[in-house]
Design a protein around this nucleic acid. Structure first.
Lengths: 190, 190
DNA sequence: CGATGTTTTGCAACGACGTTACGTTACAGT
DNA sequence: ACTGTAACGTAACGTCGTTGCAAAACATCG
């Protein structure tokens, strides 16, 4: 019963696309619901019907980003060389962050609380790292404490991402990534 | 000539104090010039006279933060054990960030461009780290590349800070700091 | 001592923002 | 056909950062 929705899935997709372009072009502060509605040729009411609020819109953008990162992570094959696998996982994180350079800060900083499903998504990626560490521990490559090492590696990876996006990682950022992650993994050796 | 300023240095200090309290209590988005003026019992015009704009106010807050961090850094004594000294420098960074937990994000994320003097201030701390690395290289403790290692250590330290402030560093954050920094430094060994 | 010039101040307004109340519209069920 | 219900577009509300403007407070000069 009631009037059928006119703001359908295609408008939703269009809004997400235009919002991404806006953020990409002018940063998070350049995204306003009114401008977004104008650019997407619809009304602010449509955004409220589809996303509930601005926070909901940002959560949906977060979801796209989290899904992209999860896809990059799952594309990394399981290897016998756990060090190589962890390095590949870190570089996959880097690649997905660099794919949406201005969208990445959305994940970390403000924009409100992400949806539980997206937290679970991010957690899955983290647990993949912890499991890889655990395999390394069992193989005698690393010392004990897979979860601690996973947390610390994540801190490094996040810091590297932030620094690279800020242009503070020097002329050869990928090399810096390799060196930093390798150094930490060497330091984790049993 | 001209009307003498009534908005003096004490109002400026009070505004900075109240602004810090506001950010501390409700985050960066809770800081509005009108609320700040009301809480500090003055007018928005005073803020504009003293800080030029909201960005100028944030830059002044950034300056306080940067000065506190520099003080913490300079309090770390030069040691013959470069590894110990770098660990102490990292923990000094942590201590100053934890002193103003909600002010720290101001330094990294938005708020606009910090003043050149504050960039220089932050740069001095970074160069202290690079020099310590260089001493370690000369002593045969680390491999070559003092500046690269400094950048990578900074990325780790910043990532650890962000993660700890987000509560993602587990139950023993200081221990995680020690382990992570030590691991990276071990990995940098010659 | 009064007139003038210059700078700061308080106040009110401007445009833009996120959000919401409201009257209208379009359908489902009777 | 009538009524109830849900989604719609429009217009407003309150807040934000910022700015124009007239009044105010001094220094300087006639």
């Amino acid at each position: 019963m009631g009037r059928p929705r006119e703001h359908d899935e295609t408008t939703r997709a269009r809004l997400l696309r235009v919002a991404g372009a806006l953020v990409e072009a002018e940063g998070v502060e350049g995204l306003s619901l009114r401008r977004l509605a104008r650019r997407a040729d619809t009304t602010t009411r449509a955004i409220y019907s589809l996303f509930e609020s601005k926070e909901g819109l940002l959560a949906a953008m977060y979801h796209e980003m989290a899904a992209a990162m999860a896809a990059h992570h799952e594309a990394v094959p399981v290897s016998e060389d756990v060090t190589e696998e962890l390095l590949a996982l870190a570089l996959a994180y880097r690649a997905s962050a660099l794919l949406h350079p201005t969208l990445y800060p959305l994940m970390v900083l403000k924009g409100g609380a992400p949806l539980p499903e997206d937290v679970a998504l991010a957690r899955r990626g983290f647990e993949r790292v912890v499991e890889t560490f655990a395999r390394g521990v069992r193989a005698g490559v690393f010392r004990r404490g897979a979860e601690s090492m996973g947390r610390q590696l994540f801190a490094l990876v996040h810091g590297l991402t932030t620094c690279e996006l800020a242009g503070m990682l020097g002329a050869r950022p990928k090399r810096a990534w390799r060196e930093a992650v390798s150094a930490m993994l060497r330091g984790f050796a049993a």
